[in-house]
């Protein structure tokens, strides 16, 4: 809870500072765009956090976004497979990717870093080969499908609406929260992330839980890839989704996930994703920050965040030790 307040405080701080320094920050267009981007990144960050909670890592998220993002318009426009079949294939491919990661990690006992690093290279390479490095787009068709990302649900009585990705994020986040906190499987994941051996000794099929985490991550990456491409309308296989895994992992870490596993809250992760997007946005909006140092700013903020978090943790441990000694 305290952790969520901390990251939420950071988010508010960045928003206020940006609003003070740029009058473009609080415009309707910018806010709506920000919410949309946050929602899209929030979805893939939730996927990453599941894997991180099991003390794993998924480096292939960006490449899966690229694969799905390019394949969907390719299947619809070039191959004319039709919407239902294309969506089915998108789901099938994402599931297969997550499943194969999970199986390689649990049954072959390969390291998650290695498996998903190979995934990162594989899926981008496959995409580029498949579509011959050509930009894939919807031309001007499929506007109904694109409503998924571009539309919004009007709020009755106002002229504003909630962007659809935001609604999708809401559904995903609520399901994730229920899963993680109110089902036995969520508890199993948190437990095995801290100590897989003891969890296995408690009669829990830890392999199955780890596989499930990678499947969830693969599916959400696929969903993310689909929504990203529906949002912008076209995808270049060379750089579509590149570095997104790092945004997702960073959001998860900012939101309170420990790479050692067993820790993390979905709300924190979504706020973490928002911090990343607001930060990017403010670098673009504030004139005196050169846009080309974007990565440096993001890196510095994350580093600062984890350092402060660690200091707070040490302080708490010291106080607890004092309190215990005083008993």
């Amino acid at each position: 809870m305290k952790k969520i307040l901390g990251i939420f405080g950071l988010l508010v701080f960045i928003c206020v500072m940006t609003a003070l320094m740029s009058d473009r920050f609080l415009t309707e267009f910018n806010v709506e765009n920000l919410i949309r981007r946050t929602a899209l990144f929030g979805i893939i960050s939730i996927g990453a956090s599941f894997v991180i909670i099991t003390s794993g890592i998924d480096l292939s998220i960006g490449s899966v976004v690229c694969l799905i993002g390019c394949l969907l318009p390719w299947m619809l426009v070039e191959k004319e497979l039709g919407v239902p079949l294309s969506l089915l294939l998108v789901v099938g491919i994402s599931l297969a990717i997550g499943l194969s990661h999970g199986l390689l990690i649990t049954k072959m006992k390969l390291q998650p870093f290695v498996v998903t690093l190979c995934g990162l290279l594989l899926y981008r390479g496959i995409t580029r080969g498949l579509v011959q490095d050509q930009t894939q787009g919807f031309k001007s068709g499929f506007s109904t499908l694109r409503e998924l990302s571009q539309g919004q649900m009007p709020l009755p009585g106002t002229e504003f609406g909630i962007p659809n990705p935001c609604l999708i994020l809401l559904v995903v986040a609520i399901l994730a929260i229920i899963f993680l906190n109110f089902t036995i499987y969520g508890r199993y994941m948190l437990a095995l992330g801290r100590n897989e051996e003891a969890t296995r000794y408690s009669g829990i099929n830890t392999d199955r839980m780890i596989i499930l985490a990678y499947v969830i991550c693969g599916m959400l990456s696929g969903l993310g890839g689909m929504l990203f491409v529906l949002d912008v309308g076209s995808a270049q296989p060379v750089d579509f989704g590149s570095f997104y895994e790092l945004y997702a992992i960073a959001a998860a870490v900012l939101g309170g996930c420990s790479l050692r596993g067993g820790e993390g809250t979905i709300i924190g992760v979504v706020i973490g994703a928002a911090v990343m997007q607001v930060l990017k946005n403010s670098i673009t909006l504030i004139d005196w920050i050169p846009t080309n140092i974007e990565y440096a700013v993001i890196g510095a903020v994350i580093l600062g965040g984890v350092v402060v978090d660690e200091l707070v943790k040490r302080f708490a441990a010291k106080r607890r030790a004092m309190a215990q000694a005083n008993q």
Binding site: R187, L190, A191, R194, N195, E197, A198, T199, Y201, S202, G203, I204, G262
Partner: peptide, 17 residues
């Protein structure tokens, strides 16, 4: 290593199986 999850509370440890 095998009996407990040290960073988890007593209640959750007892409840796990």
């Amino acid at each position: 290593q095998q009996g407990l999850i040290l960073e988890m509370g007593i209640r959750n440890n007892i409840g796990l199986p």
